[in-house]
C-alpha cells in the first residue's frame, strides 16, 4: 500500500504572532516552525498502517527550502521518502493543485492530510485535492482502519459522529485521536538525514486570492474581578453591562 501524507510547516503553537509595520506580512524571524500537529497525527497513522499492510509512506510539502527541517522531522517519525514542491504556498487552491498534479503522475492508494493547518486554518486543501482527483474525502476523521481495499472511518459531525465505509483510494483529514503521536527515536533521526527528498518544480496555477493585510484581535478591556461572595450577581452584571444574555 502506497500512502501519501501532505504536511505543512507552521509556527509553533506557543509562538507570538507578529506582522510587519504595514501589516502585510507575517514576521517569521525568531519563530520556530513545527510540523502541523494534525499532520503529525496523520503521519503517525500512516506509519502504523504501512507497518500493518506492508506499505510505504511518502510525505509531500508545498514550500520553499525553509520547510526542509520539518520535512526531515517527518522522515525521522517514519516516512520513507519526501517530496517538496518548490514554491511558496500561496493559498489552499495553489497547494491542492500542486499536490493533485503530483498524484496524477504518481498514484497512491491513500492520501492523508491534517484536518486543518494551524496557520491559515482553512480546512480546504484536503477537500480541494479530493475534488481535483475525483476522490471521496473524509475531512474530520477521528479513526481509520483498513481491511483489504475498504476503509472504515469515524467522522466527526455536529454533536456526534458517523461511521463511514469507503474504498481506496480516497483523501482523509486527520484529527486528534486518529493515532498516538510518534516521537522520533535516535535511529529515526539518524536515518532521516539520508532518506530521499526529491524537489520538484511547481506547476502554474491561476491566482485566486490575494492577501491584503493582517490584523490582530482587539485587546479586551481589563478583567473585572468579582468576589466569591458576589458570584450570584454575575449573570445580572453581564446582562446589564454586555447585553448578550
Amino acid at each position: 500500500m502506497k500512502i501519501l501524507v501532505c504536511i505543512s510547516s507552521v509556527p509553533d503553537t506557543t509562538a507570538k504572532i507578529n506582522f510587519t509595520p504595514d501589516n502585510k506580512e507575517f514576521v517569521a524571524a525568531g519563530v520556530t516552525f513545527i510540523l502541523n500537529p494534525y499532520d503529525e497525527v496523520a503521519l503517525s497513522k500512516a506509519v502504523d498502517l504501512a507497518a500493518q499492510h506492508n506499505g510505504t509512506v511518502t510525505v509531500i510539502n508545498v514550500g520553499d527550502a525553509t520547510t526542509e527541517p520539518v520535512i526531515r522531522k517527518a522522515l525521522a517519525i517514519g516516512a520513507n521518502d519526501a517530496v517538496r514542491v518548490n514554491a511558496v504556498a500561496r493559498d489552499s487552491f495553489f497547494v491542492a493543485k500542486q499536490i493533485s498534479d503530483y498524484v496524477s503522475k504518481n498514484p497512491f492508494d491513500l492520501i492523508l492530510c491534517g484536518r486543518e493547518s494551524s496557520d491559515h486554518n482553512g480546512s480546504s486543501v484536503p477537500v480541494m485535492l479530493a475534488e481535483l482527483l475525483g476522490m471521496p474525502c473524509v475531512l474530520f476523521a477521528k479513526s481509520l482502519t483498513i481491511d483489504g481495499t475498504t476503509a472504515t472511518l469515524d467522522s466527526e459531525i455536529e454533536g456526534g459522529k458517523e461511521v463511514l465505509s469507503v474504498s481506496l483510494p480516497f483523501v482523509a483529514g486527520g484529527s486528534e485521536g486518529m493515532a498516538e503521536w510518534k516521537i522520533p527515536n535516535m535511529r529515526g533521526i539518524m536515518s532521516a538525514r539520508t532518506k530521499p527528498l526529491t524537489v520538484v518544480e511547481a506547476v502554474e496555477v491561476a491566482q485566486k486570492t490575494r492577501l491584503v493585510s493582517f490584523d490582530k484581535p482587539a485587546t479586551r478591556s481589563a478583567v473585572k474581578m468579582i468576589a466569591v461572595d458576589d458570584a450570584g450577581k454575575l449573570f445580572e452584571m453581564i446582562r446589564e453591562e454586555k447585553k448578550i444574555i
Binding site: 494551524s118 486570492t209 493582517f214 490584523d215
Partner: peptide, 11 residues
C-alpha cells in the same frame, strides 16, 4: 488566521 491569534483580509 493563526488559530485565533490574528485576522487575515483576503481579496
Amino acid at each position: 488566521a493563526y488559530s485565533g491569534k490574528a485576522y487575515a483580509m483576503v481579496e
